[in-house]
Design a protein around this nucleic acid. Structure first.
Length: 297
DNA sequence: CACCATGTTCCTTG
DNA sequence: CCAAGGAACATGGT
């Protein structure tokens, strides 16, 4: 469930539910997700602490807590990796398979489960310092994007996954943004024209904002365990419409017709990850490769 | 069995 | 020192 929009929707969901709750017990089932914090350090710091706030930075959840008889607030950093979920559940739940950490909050539990354990729930916040601009904040300007792309010869799709370029974009929305901007994923980052950068900038913001709006509208069930939950990041409540997946124009649509022109959507591998695009709508064309010395204008 | 999967970090290579 | 490429992490679905 893990790109910026999904995390944002989760944060909005959890924030009011957590506020004011006090952690009465801590259970660590997977030491790995705490690293480099140790289990004893983690447990000691959190027991007795009260949730005061929750926000998002890139794909990270930033929890703030207040500890008894302490002035400085505590920051807890969460990341969902590929398969992480965080939700509140009744204190006596059915046995769950991949619970990494459980925090008891009176009659409820805050559960972080993660089948692949790629995610994090840790007191180490150093990862935040390595993030680039928030795409929906004013600091993210067309110029900032242009500068970030200008020094890389990597394909633009690969560069967009670099969290220094823009925080929170992942494999799905990178493809979706490029489609919306009509820019080929293969184009070298530094070869985009100003116009292409501008279109990409607008596309990124549009695509992310739309996904947040969509997730905020769909009835969600973050604790849900549907097997078919793979590609729709928010667990859908029973009976909810499937228009979330339908909003994707190219991702995971190899061989299907482009909704713009009808051409077959292509899948390619870049930096060991799948990219999807329409070969007709997204032309491989940016700055001219060489300075023209011929007759063209 | 083979290949695929929403992410990040670390190591090697150039 | 830096950029780029790839493997590793761990588990499950198709």
């Amino acid at each position: 469930m893990p790109e910026l929009p999904e995390v944002e929707v989760l944060v909005r969901h959890l924030s009011p539910l957590l506020k004011g709750k006090i952690i009465t017990a801590v259970q660590v089932h997977r030491t790995k997700v705490l690293l480099p914090t140790s289990p004893s350090q983690f447990t000691r710091a959190l027991r007795g602490a009260r949730f005061t706030g929750l926000s998002r930075r890139g794909k990270y959840l930033v929890f703030t807590l207040q500890r008894p008889r302490r002035r400085t607030p505590l920051t807890l950093l969460g990341h969902l990796g590929m398969t992480g979920r965080m939700y509140l559940a009744p204190a006596s739940p059915p046995p769950l398979r991949h619970v990494a950490v459980m925090l008891r909050l009176g009659r409820q539990n805050f559960i972080y489960e993660d089948t692949r354990y790629f995610g994090r729930l840790t007191l180490d916040t150093s990862a935040l310092a390595r993030l680039g601009p928030e795409p929906l904040d004013p600091e993210f300007t067309p110029d900032a994007l242009a500068r970030a792309l200008s020094r890389s010869s990597q394909p633009v799709k690969v560069k967009l996954l670099d969290q220094v370029v823009v925080a929170g974009l992942g494999n799905i929305y990178a493809s979706e943004s490029l489609f919306r901007a009509r820019v080929s994923p293969c184009l070298s980052a530094r070869k985009l024209t100003h116009k292409q950068v501008y279109r990409l900038w607008r596309a990124i913001r549009h695509v992310l904002a739309e996904a947040i709006a969509c997730g905020s509208t769909v009835p969600l069930n973050h604790a849900g365990h549907g097997k078919r939950d793979g590609l729709f990041y928010f667990g859908r409540a029973a009976g909810a419409p499937d228009f979330y997946a339908k909003r994707l124009w190219v991702y995971d649509r190899e061989g299907k017709p482009c909704s713009g022109c009808g051409a077959s959507i292509k899948r390619i591998v870049q930096a060991t990850r799948s990219s999807y695009y329409c070969p007709r709508c997204q032309h491989q064309r940016g700055r001219p490769r060489h300075r023209g010395r011929g007759k063209t204008s």
